[in-house]
C-alpha cells in the first residue's frame, strides 16, 4: 500500500490545486499567496521570465521560485512573458513597483550581447535594475559531428571554408563562434537556427560542420560519442566536461559566457533585497537545488550583485572591442 499512498497524496494535491486563502487588495495576477506578518514577502511575489516554458531560463526560475517559496515562506509564482530575447519581461520589471512584489532572473546576453545586435533605443541597460545576486552559468561548448573530418581545433584552423550553426542572432552561440573564426582567420558562414534543438539536429545530421551549444543541450550526444567537444567558451573548465579545454587555455581570446542573476526594479528597499539574498543563499544550499544544477549541467555562479554588474560591464566592453577588431556584424544594428 505504501507504494500507492505517495502517488495518491500527490493526486489529491493535483486535484485540489492549492486552496490557500488570503485577503489582499488591488488588482493582482495570481491566486492565493501566503505569508503574514511584517517581513517580506507579505503577498505573492511574481517572478517574470522572458522566455517560453521549458527552456533553461524558465527551468532555472522555477527551481529558484520553488526554493524561495520554501525558504522565505511565501509564494513566488513564475509568470512567462516571452518576447524579444527577454526584453519584454525586462521592460515590465523596470516599470513594476519597486517593493519586491515583482522580481526576475535575467540573462547576461540581454545586457552584454543583444545591445551589439540591435539599435540603441531597443537595447536594455542594467542601470535600470538593482541586481540582487548571481545564480548560475550556462557555458557554451564547441562541437562537431564525430563522423566529420574536423576532430580538433587544428582541423578547423586548416579548413578552407566552414559552415557553423548558431542558436540564433544575438546569442552567445553566435558571438562566440563569430569571434572564434575571426580570431582563427577562417572563412566561415554563419547559419542561424531557431534555438538549441534545431542546431543540435543540424550538426548531428551534418548540415553544418560545427556548432556552439549550451552544455545541457549537447552533453547527451557528447557522452554517447555522436558529437566531439572541441572546447568550452567559459572562463574555466566545466565539471561536466572535465577533459575539454577552455578557449583561454587554447590561447584564444574568445571567452563568452551566459549567466543569470536575480534582479529587482531600481529603488527596491534593502530589507527586500536582503531577504531575497538570504532566501537565495538558503536555496543554493539545498540538495534539491544542487541536484537540479547538476542534471541541467549548470555551473553555480553565486556571487554578489555588484560583482555581477562589474562582470556585465567588463563583458560588454570586451565583446564590443573584439567585434570591432574582427569587423563582425551580429545584426543590422547600423
Amino acid at each position: 500500500m505504501t507504494k500507492l499512498a505517495a502517488p495518491l497524496r500527490t493526486a489529491a494535491l493535483l486535484a485540489a490545486g492549492g486552496l490557500a486563502l488570503s485577503a489582499c487588495s488591488g488588482v493582482q495576477n495570481t491566486a492565493g499567496g501566503s505569508g503574514g506578518g511584517d517581513t517580506y514577502p507579505t503577498g505573492s511575489v511574481e517572478m517574470l521570465v522572458g522566455a517560453d516554458p521549458g527552456g533553461s531560463s524558465d527551468l532555472i526560475s522555477r527551481a529558484v521560485s520553488d526554493g524561495l517559496g520554501n525558504e522565505l515562506d511565501g509564494s513566488f509564482p513564475v509568470i512567462n512573458r516571452p518576447g524579444a530575447n527577454g526584453a519584454l519581461a525586462a521592460g515590465e520589471l523596470e516599470n513594476a513597483e519597486p517593493d519586491g512584489s515583482t522580481i526576475a532572473i535575467q540573462n547576461a546576453s540581454l545586457f552584454a550581447i543583444t545591445p551589439l545586435a540591435v539599435p540603441e533605443d531597443e537595447a536594455t541597460s542594467i542601470d535600470d535594475f538593482d541586481v540582487v545576486g548571481g545564480v548560475s552559468r550556462d557555458d557554451y561548448v564547441l562541437v562537431t559531428n564525430a563522423d566529420s573530418e574536423y576532430q580538433s581545433l587544428e582541423d578547423l584552423e586548416g579548413a578552407g571554408s566552414l559552415r557553423y550553426g548558431t542558436t540564433g542572432v544575438g546569442t552567445g552561440s553566435q558571438l562566440a563562434q563569430a569571434l572564434l573564426f575571426g580570431d582563427l582567420g577562417v572563412d566561415a558562414t554563419d547559419v542561424p537556427f531557431d534555438g538549441g534543438s534545431p542546431t543540435l539536429t543540424a550538426v548531428l545530421g551534418g548540415q553544418v560542420d560545427v556548432a556552439a551549444l549550451q552544455i545541457g543541450e549537447a552533453i547527451e550526444n557528447v557522452e554517447s560519442g555522436n558529437l566531439t567537444p572541441l572546447m568550452v567558451f567559459g572562463p574555466e573548465r566545466v565539471e561536466f566536461l572535465p577533459d575539454v579545454p577552455t578557449a583561454t587555455e587554447e590561447g584564444l581570446e574568445v571567452e563568452v559566457a551566459q549567466y543569470r542573476f536575480m534582479t529587482v526594479p531600481t529603488g527596491t528597499p534593502s530589507e527586500v533585497t536582503d531577504r531575497l539574498t538570504e532566501g537565495m543563499e538558503a536555496t543554493f544550499a539545498t540538495d534539491e537545488y544542487q541536484a537540479f544544477n547538476e542534471q541541467n549541467s549548470l555551473t553555480p555562479m553565486e556571487i554578489s550583485g555588484d560583482e555581477v554588474v562589474a562582470q556585465l560591464e567588463e563583458d560588454r566592453e570586451r565583446y564590443a572591442g573584439l567585434i570591432e577588431e574582427y569587423g563582425i556584424n551580429l545584426g543590422d544594428a547600423s
Binding site: 516554458p53 534543438s197 547527451e220 550526444n221 554517447s224
Partner: peptide, 30 residues
C-alpha cells in the same frame, strides 16, 4: 527524436524532457 537522439521535437516534449532531467533521468541515445 527525443527517445533516440535527445532532441525534443516541440515545446511540450521539451517540457517533458525537462521533467525527466529533474527526475534524474538523462534522455538521449543511450
Amino acid at each position: 527524436p527525443l527517445l533516440t537522439l535527445g532532441i525534443p521535437a516541440n515545446a511540450s516534449i521539451a517540457m517533458l524532457y525537462a521533467a525527466l532531467l529533474i527526475a534524474g533521468v538523462r534522455v538521449g541515445p543511450s
